[in-house]
């Protein structure tokens, strides 16, 4: 086995392990940290698949922005009392059954699909990930979705502001 392959499997294992840690950790902040870890590992995957720009976006937006936001919100609401940060599961067994069913079905279909098999045998593995190609496609072929998405982001900003704003007189729902 080449060193590259070993590193790749270690990466895969790290990804899965950190994902497990996200969902079973009793401590919410620890969950968030593991989520950041798994997102960073995904970024490494992106780099190895030739998607440098995506990796950058992943690190900046996800690991940087989203995780910070989540940690902020946790600290904002939990008032740093350790007993309130305790996190439990409810209905774990049906959840486990359902999610493993999804997992096995996905694996089954990709394993038996001839198309995926042929792809796995001979991936085209072209390294086209330079940002120039991506942005040229983005701003020509995909420009309409892009513009629509910018509208969505605007709506999300306004919506988040409106929702999170603290009104002077709060009505009890």
């Amino acid at each position: 086995m080449k060193a590259e392959t070993i590193a790749f499997f270690i990466l895969c294992l790290g990804l899965v392990a950190s994902s497990i840690a996200v969902v079973i950790s009793k401590h919410l902040l620890r969950s968030a940290i593991f989520l950041a870890l798994s997102l960073l590992l995904t970024a490494i995957f992106y780099i190895s698949f030739g998607a440098e720009l995506l990796a950058g976006v992943q690190i900046l937006l996800y690991a940087g922005g989203v995780i910070t936001l989540i940690v902020f919100v946790i600290l904002l609401t939990e008032r740093i009392e350790m007993k309130k940060l305790e996190e439990t599961h409810r209905g774990a067994i049906p959840a486990l059954l359902a999610s493993s069913l999804v997992f096995f079905i996905l694996v089954y279909f990709t394993w038996t699909s001839p198309k995926v098999q042929s792809l796995a045998k001979s991936p085209s593995s072209s390294t086209f990930g330079i940002s120039k190609t991506l942005s040229e496609n983005l701003f020509q072929e995909w420009v309409l979705p892009f513009e629509v998405l910018s509208l969505l982001l605007l709506a999300a900003i306004i919506g988040a502001l409106v929702l999170a704003r603290r009104e002077r007189k709060e009505k009890e729902i």
Binding site: V16, S19, V23, A92, L106, V107, T110
Partner: peptide
């Protein structure tokens, strides 16, 4: 780099996320 292990890692991650959503 190979296709199947990565895909399965992604699927596993997806299912774990689903488990988290369903049970946390």
């Amino acid at each position: 780099m190979s296709l199947y292990p990565t895909l399965w890692a992604a699927f596993l991650m997806f299912s774990l996320g689903l488990f988290g959503v369903l049970s946390r």
